[in-house]
């Protein structure tokens, strides 16, 4: 039983480290701010979850497990709120996303912001 727990914990920790590294590479590799947010979102949901589950499997007593569950819940509740606030603030300040040219233009009459954005198609960002 003990060996099974430690093997499971090792697998979870390794998977978590891999996902973490993937998120770190994504944040350097993706072309613009909005796509980078997706990379961060990977490393915040699944990598945090995997590493914390791996720690839960090898924790010495019950109270540690409860604290780890609470940290996981906090991260999962907080990360969408802060990333939404970040994206909304960037959009309101007029940061234009880089959109792919393969997608047909989207007709949008519901609000100005979105139609304003979609006119800016296929222009790669100058910084990369």
């Amino acid at each position: 039983m003990d060996t099974a727990l430690s093997i499971g914990s090792a697998i979870c920790l390794l998977l978590g480290s891999f996902l973490c590294l993937t998120g770190g590479i994504g944040i350097l590799r993706f072309p613009d701010f909005y796509t980078r947010m997706h990379a961060v979102s990977v490393s915040e949901t699944s990598a945090a979850g995997m590493i914390l589950i791996g720690l839960m499997l090898q924790s010495p007593d019950g109270i540690v497990v409860i604290k780890l569950v609470m940290i996981l819940l906090m991260v999962l509740f907080i990360s969408p709120a802060s990333s939404h606030a970040l994206a909304q603030s960037a959009m309101r300040h007029g940061l234009k996303p880089w959109l792919s040219t393969t997608v047909p233009a989207i007709k949008n009459k519901h609000n100005e912001t979105a139609s304003d954005i979609t006119s800016d198609k296929g222009v790669p960002p100058s910084n990369l």
Binding site: T22, G23, I25, G26, R29, F30, P31, D32, Y34, T35, A39, V42, P97, W98, L99, S100, T102, V103, I106, N108, A114, I117, T118
Partner: peptide, 13 residues
């Protein structure tokens, strides 16, 4: 992320 920038199709709608 591992396949690279050519395979992503960012969309906003």
């Amino acid at each position: 992320i591992w396949l690279g920038n050519k395979t992503i199709t960012p969309t906003m709608t």
